[in-house]
């Protein structure tokens, strides 16, 4: 069901996608407008989540120049200046479920529990990141502007 919705994203403008937590989240064009938590995101906390092994660990695949984390990966694109290119809502969708935009993507879907195969018991039925954590990440990435680099 969600796959069909994902495929139609570019044809129709507005979709309602049922999330793992059974809330409705609005996906408009290539963006997810509604925050995933009532807590306002903090860029400072987002930076930590981005780098920490036991949180987002986004540095596995992404680099942000100036970020204090050794050995940043390059499987995904560098995210320095991403705030110039993408709105917070666009960033939110890419973290929550990048596979809606590119079914072949390597980028994991951090806010998804369905359509996954053989998830370890300890993680089954749980999203990789919480809504609050994603809001922190959105706040952090949205303020990465190229002139600050």
């Amino acid at each position: 069901m969600r796959w069909a919705l994902g495929a139609m994203l570019f044809c129709l403008c507005t979709q309602v996608v049922a999330t793992s937590e059974q809330q409705a989240m609005r996906v408009v064009s290539d963006a997810m407008v509604a925050p995933l938590s009532d807590v306002t995101g903090s860029a400072e906390q987002g930076e930590q989540i981005f780098a920490a092994r036991d949180a987002g660990h986004c540095v596995l695949c992404h680099q942000v120049s100036g970020l204090d984390a050794p050995f940043q990966g390059n499987i995904g694109p560098a995210l320095g200046g991403i705030g110039d290119r993408l709105s917070p809502a666009q960033i939110r969708l890419r973290i929550a479920d990048a596979s809606l935009l590119n079914a072949q993507t390597i980028m994991p879907s951090y806010y998804r529990t369905e359509g996954l195969h053989r998830v370890d018991e300890r993680y089954r039925g749980r999203t990789a990141l919480s809504g609050v954590q994603i809001e922190h990440l959105v706040a952090y990435l949205a303020q990465l502007q190229s002139q600050n680099q």
Partner: peptide, 27 residues
């Protein structure tokens, strides 16, 4: 076959991404 919470297949790392860096590890 993609698998796990991170939804990745062997193919995606070892066919599509070898030579790139996964943190400090060259895949």
């Amino acid at each position: 076959q993609r698998r796990g919470q991170l939804n990745l297949a062997c193919h995606q790392c070892h066919d599509e991404s070898w030579g790139k860096m996964l943190r400090g590890d060259q895949v």
